[in-house]
Amino acid sequence: MASTACFMIVSKNDIPIYEAEVGTVPKKEDAAHQHQFILHAALDIVQDTAWTTSAMFLKSIDRFNDLVVSVYVTAGHTRLMLLHDSRNDDGIKSFFQEVHELYIKTLLNPLYLPGSRVTSSHFDTKVRALARKYL
């Protein structure tokens, strides 16, 4: 389990549709902002990298200080982004894959408007459980 991790889903339109702090260390609010800022900045690199590979999992593509950004890009160009400080690529990959599956389930919900915020508490619980399992 990583000591710090911030997970976000960013829609095709660059709008964050889900965010979760999945770290164990309780942090100040300021740090949470910082995490989002780092993830936001990493989008620039994702946008270039995503087209250079056929893989969905882009591994760690960016870092700031000791925080690493790993990204998983779905076919619909929704980006699952994880900010973490550990180097557990396999775990992160599994985490992304499972979250992707969850996200697809959410997408299948006819009441969910693609591109809008994911507000399902079930989704949230599942993501946090996955984070505990893999990270």
């Binding site: 339109n13 660059d14 709008i15 964050p16 965010e19 902002h33 989002q36 800022f37 936001h40």
Partner: peptide, 15 residues
Amino acid sequence: IVSLFESQWSTLQMV
């Protein structure tokens, strides 16, 4: 309209 709301990270924007 959609492009108007593109890239709206409310948390960051507020900060």
